[in-house]
């Protein structure tokens, strides 16, 4: 399946995955991650069950230090 993650095309195995698995595939384990799929916020407690399908646009935010 093919999605975009932060506007960058990503190839993932299978036909569907979950929001949590997308983050796991990227190795993201930051202290705060906020996700949107096709423009809609996906709360953290819904990541396990939220299905991501071919063609979905995933936006995920994490924080880096500096201020």
């Amino acid at each position: 399946m093919r999605i975009t993650l932060n506007d960058i095309p990503e190839e993932l195995p299978g036909d569907a995955t979950t929001a949590r698995d997308v983050l796991a595939a990227k190795g993201w384990s930051f202290p705060l991650i906020i996700m949107k799929v096709n423009g809609v916020l996906v709360p953290r407690d819904a990541w396990d069950g939220f299905v991501i399908r071919d063609g979905d646009a995933v936006e995920a935010l994490h924080l880096v230090s500096g201020g």
Binding site: P31, L32, V64, S65, G67
Partner: peptide, 14 residues
């Protein structure tokens, strides 16, 4: 949010 440290940023935003 105008902190320096990423962990502090995360704490405040959450």
């Amino acid at each position: 949010e105008a902190f320096d440290d990423a962990g502090a940023k995360a704490m405040l935003i959450r």
